[in-house]
Amino acid sequence: MSSLIELVKSAKADGNPGAMDTAYPYAVYLGLQGSLLDDQLVYSLPFDNKIVGNPLLPAIHGGVVGAFLESVALMTLMWELDVVQLPKTIDITFDYLRSAGPKTTWAKAILTKRGRRVANVRVEAWQDDPQKPVAAAHGNFLTG
């Protein structure tokens, strides 16, 4: 079994999604942190000057917001499904709804359909108010 899947299994056995924060180097680079809120996995992306895309607004780079949404989709898939390897993104579409300002961003994912081989996931990211998302994504992931 891969080291990544071993880490995920042990995080799930302990009911501690925070143990998956170090699942891969890019999640550590962004400083992603997962926690459970009423059984729903919620992730935070801390603000840092290194993720700024527009220094004049200022706003977080759209690529980082997209990377955050995709990461949350992947982490949620591994948390909710018994996968034997890291799910592969087949395709993903990002909608940029508002500019993401210099503060913590939050996101959660919902599995809209879990098929035998493919799962469809929706993700939303927000800053101050979950009712005012800054970005959303939906994608298909190969899970089997």
Partner: peptide, 10 residues
């Protein structure tokens, strides 16, 4: 990570 490709492409 795929997200890095998103940043490059964006």
């Amino acid at each position: 990570h795929g997200g890095v490709i998103t940043t490059l492409i964006d």
